[in-house]
Amino acid sequence: MRRGTRYGALLGPLLAGGARPDLVERAARGLGLPERGRYAVVVLGAPVPEGAVVEGPDVDGARWWWGGADGSPGGAEGRGEGREEVREVAVVLLGPAGPDRVVARLRELGAGPGGVSPVVGSPSEVAAAHRLAGTALLTCEPGSREIVRLDERLPAALLVSRPELSTRLLAEVFGPLLTLVPAERSLLVETLEAWLECGGSVGRAAARLGCHRNTVFNRLRRLERLTARSLSRPRELVDLVLALDVLRLSSAPAGPGGGG
């Protein structure tokens, strides 16, 4: 992985949308980026870990160019917090293992939170990839060290891209749920998450939560009554899953768990 003020200056025209084609071409030549290749952009929401920036290709053959701090909005749109965050950005010429190895490498280094763009085929597409990597970063849970690919988080990416609709969705679907005391709300949310992660199996969710399957069933029925949506109707289940994503991405915690 490479880094330095020279790289940062050259990456500027590539990462910023709207740069003149001749500037993009000149920057790509200065960095040694081939005209055609498999590129991805990484955006981190925290400083690059010690040891992450080294000269030359990594073990997979991928080549990294770190541009240093990116002072673009780091979540104001998706979080509604209105603050500026410094983000670290890298352009990666992918090796044979592709973007999965990029994600694995960043996790090995303890980086995160971070977003990885879809693969693009030329330096002229890096600006678009930069925007998408930033969107992927916004789908990371607050306070986490997740490294995620945009293609794995497309529904959540749609939500963070339209915060006013996300707020409306949360209020419309989970409004009554949000009026509960935090312990009750957290219990129902935790049960729904476990049920979804267990493929809709009440028995497996009960084993994960350490309670009786009837307890899980009763909590889910209560959730259905509060939201006026059925887990057995696919379109209504989509509403619940998307609202759960909005709640997960909110900076406000759901509250401590409780018994029941």
Rank of each mutant, 00 (worst) to 15 (best):
G18N: 08
S72M: 10
R26S: 10
S122M: 00
R229H: 07
D58E: 07
T215V: 15
G71W: 14
A69P: 12
Y39Q: 08
S72K: 13
E164L: 06
L15A: 08
A52P: 02
E172L: 10
V246Q: 04
R208W: 06
R233N: 00
R222S: 04
G210I: 01
L223Y: 10
V148M: 13
R185A: 05
G74H: 15
L94C: 04
R208M: 04
P234T: 00
G255Q: 15
L23C: 00
A40H: 10
A127C: 07
G71R: 13
G71A: 05
E141F: 00
L196T: 03
G37R: 12
G210M: 13
E141T: 15
G115H: 12
S117E: 13
V24K: 02
A76D: 15
G61I: 13
L31C: 13
A207K: 14
N218P: 01
R229I: 03
R6F: 10
A76L: 12
L187C: 14
V116H: 06
G114Y: 08
R101N: 03
A90I: 02
G80P: 11
R87Y: 01
L249R: 09
R153F: 00
R248V: 00
S144A: 12
E25T: 11
L158R: 15
D100V: 04
N218Y: 09
G110Y: 13
A194P: 03
G95E: 10
L220C: 02
G4W: 07
V148G: 09
G259V: 15
R229E: 09
L158S: 08
L178W: 09
P47H: 06
E152M: 08
S201K: 06
P163L: 12
P113L: 08
W195L: 01
G112T: 12
D58A: 07
R63W: 06
G175H: 04
V189W: 10
G78K: 03
A133V: 14
A128Q: 09
G37C: 06
A9Y: 05
S166L: 03
L220N: 03
P253T: 05
L237I: 01
R145L: 12
E88W: 13
R162Q: 09
S232I: 01
D245G: 01
A194W: 13
G115F: 04
G8K: 05
L106M: 07
V103W: 07
D239Y: 12
V160M: 07
W64I: 02
G17R: 03
G143N: 10
E77M: 07
V216Y: 11
R63E: 11
G68D: 07
R219L: 13
R101P: 02
R219E: 03
G74T: 04
G121C: 10
S201A: 00
S161K: 06
E84S: 12
T215I: 13
D151M: 02
V241Q: 11
Y39K: 15
R38G: 05
D245A: 07
P99D: 15
